[in-house]
């Protein structure tokens, strides 16, 4: 089993001493994210996220399939994550590590369970046909902050994605190509984003968006998912160093503020992209609804 190289004792002492003196190795404030870079692919539903050196690509695809028999009125939405050895030598193909399980579980809770994507709107004919929306998360480079980056990628990609329009006649379903009919955006109920906090010094020092190195030395972490309406979608402090309850509540407030900022940033990039897609204002030309 390949493993991440452990930081040496000297490195460890250096980083921790610096943290004690309120300094992070990369010079960031304790509650600062690394630079976020978001771009979209040429097709709908591809988002490329760079958070510092961590890079994640999410791709959304949709096809018509049969719903689960116990959920006749819902479409299917799955998120799959893939940690390839390309990103880090510690990742292995074919074997699920704990980290991968936790990542996919957290994305599941943050996005799927919190109902970010309205699966009821994916139903075409109850019990017979529905949309199967798949989000594939590929980690291309790994330097900590995996959950945060993946979540941004999936949410941005979902917001960018357009599924083909369908019409129903009796039992028959017609799926129109993107040229035949203007494709439809997915119905999103809210846009959850994750913020990871790492604890050091018995929970005395709390650091946001830890790099891989910081993550290896931390005594515990907590991932908070929130949306810009001030709702907490998920909290996961899965063990680790016991930390004061009040400190945790402070983290929640920080997370809510950070999520608001990030949400705004993502919306900005989406708008820019929409403008680029709209070749010289042709969208206005194609609108069928016009003022009298």
């Amino acid at each position: 089993m390949p493993r991440e190289a452990e930081p040496s004792i000297n490195e460890r002492a250096f980083v921790l001493q610096a943290l004690r003196e309120n300094i992070r190795i990369d010079g960031r404030a304790f509650d600062a994210f690394r630079d976020l870079e978001l771009s979209f692919g040429d097709e709908f539903g591809i988002a490329d996220v760079k958070l510092g050196r961590t890079r994640v690509i999410a791709r959304i695809s949709a096809e018509v399939s049969e719903p689960f028999p116990d959920r006749k009125f819902d479409g299917i939405f799955t998120i799959t994550t893939e940690l390839s050895p390309m990103a880090s030598p510690a990742f292995e193909v074919g074997r699920q590590t704990d980290q991968e399980t936790i990542l996919s579980r957290l994305l599941e809770k943050a996005i799927r369970r919190s109902n970010a994507l309205d699966t009821e709107s994916l139903c075409i004919i109850a019990g017979k046909k529905c949309w199967n929306v798949r989000a594939d998360v590929h980690v291309l480079d790994y330097d900590g902050g995996l959950v945060d980056a993946s979540c941004i990628a999936v949410i941005a990609a979902l917001r960018h994605f357009r599924r083909p329009d369908v019409s129903i006649e009796g039992e028959g379903v017609t799926v129109y190509t993107l040229v035949e009919r203007v494709p439809v955006a997915l119905a999103m109920l809210h846009h959850p984003l994750c913020v990871t906090f790492s604890f050091f010094e018995g929970g005395e020092v709390v650091v946001l968006d830890a790099t891989l190195q910081e993550q290896q030395m931390s005594e515990g972490e907590m991932i908070i998912t929130a949306n810009r309406h001030g709702e907490i979608c998920q909290i996961a402090k899965l063990g680790g160093v016991p930390t004061d309850a009040l400190a945790l509540l402070r983290c929640v407030d920080v997370a809510v503020a950070k999520v608001r900022d990030m949400s705004k940033a993502i919306t900005g990039v989406l708008e820019m992209d929409a403008k680029e897609q709209d070749l010289g204002g042709m969208t206005a030309e194609l609108s069928a609804e016009n003022d009298r």
């Binding site: 907590m222 709702e231 979608c233 998920q234 402090k237 899965l238 680790g240 309850a245 407030d253 809510v256």
Partner: peptide, 12 residues
């Protein structure tokens, strides 16, 4: 607090 897990949406 050692473990804190929440899986449902709630107002802050």
């Amino acid at each position: 607090v050692s473990v804190l897990v929440m899986e449902t949406r709630v107002q802050v």
